[in-house]
């Protein structure tokens, strides 16, 4: 309860600061006040086109998460198992991780043009290296003494993977998931803005073209709210799992 009050107080502080800055700037073309943005959100959320765009963005986020996690964890698992493979692949993965989103966007637009696929591919390419490395590090930091114990008792590899490696990878994986879920919205919206044909990012691009600044802020606020809600649910889910596994 105490935390909830602090959280609400934090939101109030944001609104007061925003109102003050908006008043000082004095131009709704640069920074509209919070009430204008809230009114715009209420209006926009009644439009089917906006709801459809929101669902499109959400579906892309879901697809990106599913693909990133399934491919990233699988590759990370095998990369982490073998020192040589890890040492050989790690520089490449780090290079891919360091490539700016804008470069991927340019490449994807050349190959696939404007559409649904571009934002999804760009987002996966941006988030996959982190998932692979986190999983690989989790595998590499597995207590080797437990693996030796399993070897002495001739435990099946599938059981070792499930009961030892999974527990070891779990904290790394969950913290990677927190980072990915925190970033996936930003990446997808940016990608939609640059090379999408539908979605909130596209609506922001249109709003910018028509100088509807309050809409840019409204769409952004919608995405931030959903992102924070999902992140919050994820954090609670992570804590619950870690407690169940006695990892915190």
């Amino acid at each position: 309860m105490d935390n909830l009050w602090k959280y609400l107080l934090g939101i109030v502080v944001i609104f007061i600061t925003w109102t003050l800055i908006s008043y000082i700037v004095g131009s709704s073309l640069i920074l509209p006040d919070p009430l204008t943005v809230i009114r715009t959100i209420a209006t926009e959320l009644k439009r089917l086109e906006v709801i459809f765009a929101l669902l499109t963005t959400l579906s892309k986020v879901a697809v990106v998460l599913a693909i990133t996690v399934s491919i990233g964890v699988t590759i990370g698992f095998f990369v982490g198992l073998n020192d040589t493979i890890y040492d050989v692949l790690r520089p490449g993965i780090l290079v891919i991780q360091a490539i700016p989103i804008i470069t991927w966007l340019a490449l994807v637009m050349f190959i696939w043009g404007i559409g649904w696929l571009g934002p999804v591919i760009v987002s996966i390419l941006s988030l996959l290296p982190h998932t692979i490395l986190s999983t690989a590090i989790g595998i590499r930091t597995t207590d080797k003494r437990l693996i030796e114990m399993a070897k002495v008792y001739r435990v099946k590899p599938s059981r070792v993977a499930k009961d030892i490696y999974m527990g070891s990878v779990l904290p790394q994986f969950l913290s990677a998931m927190q980072v990915i879920i925190g970033n996936v919205w930003k990446v997808v919206v940016v990608a939609e803005y640059m090379c999408g044909d539908k979605g909130i990012g596209v609506l922001i691009a249109w709003a910018r073209q028509s100088v509807a600044v309050e809409k840019v802020y409204a769409y952004t606020a919608i995405i931030i709210t959903i992102g924070l809600l999902v992140e919050n649910v994820m954090n609670q889910f992570v804590m619950k799992i870690l407690k169940n596994w006695e990892l915190v």
Partner: peptide, 21 residues
């Protein structure tokens, strides 16, 4: 093999540690 240190799987109960083998 009774190891020098217990080598129990930290996230498993005693019974589940034994079920592992």
């Amino acid at each position: 093999y009774v190891f020098q240190e217990p080598r129990l799987i930290p996230w498993k109960t005693v019974i589940d540690n034994l079920k592992f083998v």
